[in-house]
Amino acid sequence: MPISRIAVGNPIEVGQPEALKAGLAEFISVLIFVFAGEGSGMAFNYVTSDGSTTPAGLIQASLAHAFGLFVAVSIGANISGGHVNPAVTFGAFIGGHITLSRSVLYWVAQLLGSVVACLLLKLATGGLTTSAFSLSSGVSVWNALVFEIVMTFGLVYTVYATAVDPKKGNINIGIVAPIAIGFIVGANILAGGAFDGASMNPAVSFGPAVVSWTWDNHWVYWLGPFVGAAIAAVVYETFFISQDTYDQLPSA
């Protein structure tokens, strides 16, 4: 079982140059991703009178996040693994591919990257609101929780299949993985964006919440992605990664 490979790690490793470089890579990747994704929503609301959950708004958000995530994963893949998402990091931790110590470093870097991106957007737009994720009318927290679990399961399962699986081949990490990961996020936004915003990424939800100081139902955007990521990691590790082919995911 993958849970038997969970490693706490040594806190000392967080201060090593290689780990700090990986953390910086996660910070920059998340900053780029959130700036593009959140900024696209702000731009759409600025130039139109329609909401971001209209058909046009969902298509715009889907494309912006798919393109932005493709770039963010690509530029971080060779340094930090290109997680760009605390839930992806958690899934890798559950599968034994990253220690808890390094996971905490990644989480801090990812959250800071999102906050800085939203602050930069607020500065660049002259104080426009960075809208926090929220539930649409008629959508309960439990509906949203299921959406986040299922969508993040699909995302992390895709990460495992294209980037983590030792049978993936060298070409996937540089080409196929970022494309597939970007596509699944874009598709999930089209599926769930009208209901709860389709976060799948606690960092993406955290930055706008901090800058706008809006925390309504914010826990949904943490619990859902972490549960979905854990399920995906356990399923893929248990059924598709055999013990004789298991290989530790490089952290750099």
Rank of each mutant, 00 (worst) to 15 (best):
I181S: 00
G138Q: 08
F153D: 03
D196F: 04
M200S: 01
I181M: 02
A163N: 15
V185E: 00
I189M: 03
N172S: 15
P166I: 13
G197T: 10
P202V: 06
I171F: 13
N172R: 10
D165K: 12
Y157C: 02
L155W: 02
G186V: 03
V176I: 13
F195P: 01
S140D: 01
F183R: 02
N188C: 08
F183Q: 07
D196R: 06
A163Q: 14
S136P: 00
V146E: 05
V146P: 03
N201S: 09
G192P: 00
P178W: 02
Y157M: 04
I179F: 13
I171C: 12
A187N: 06
N170R: 11
I173E: 04
V159I: 07
A180E: 12
F195D: 02
G186C: 04
I181V: 09
V141F: 04
N170I: 09
V156I: 14
E148K: 01
I171G: 12
V139D: 01
I175D: 14
W142V: 10
T158D: 02
I149T: 08
I173A: 12
A161M: 08
I179S: 11
A198M: 07
V164T: 03
G192R: 10
N143Q: 13
G154Y: 06
G197L: 10
T162V: 09
V156Q: 05
G197K: 02
G186N: 06
Y160A: 12
F195W: 05
T152N: 09
T158W: 01
G182D: 02
K167R: 15
E148C: 04
V146Y: 08
F153H: 00
T158I: 08
W142N: 02
V150L: 10
N201Y: 10
L190E: 07
A144Y: 07
F195V: 00
G186W: 02
A177L: 10
A144T: 08
A163Y: 12
P178S: 00
G174P: 00
V176N: 02
A187S: 08
I184Q: 09
V159L: 11
V139I: 15
M151G: 09
V164A: 05
W142R: 04
G192N: 08
K167I: 12
V159H: 05
I149V: 14
G193A: 06
S137Q: 14
S136Q: 08
I175P: 13
G192C: 08
G193S: 10
S199N: 12
S140Q: 10
N172V: 13
G193I: 00
K167M: 15
A187V: 04
V159F: 06
I184F: 05
N188Y: 01
T162P: 03
V141H: 01
N201C: 12
A177C: 13
A187M: 03
V141E: 03
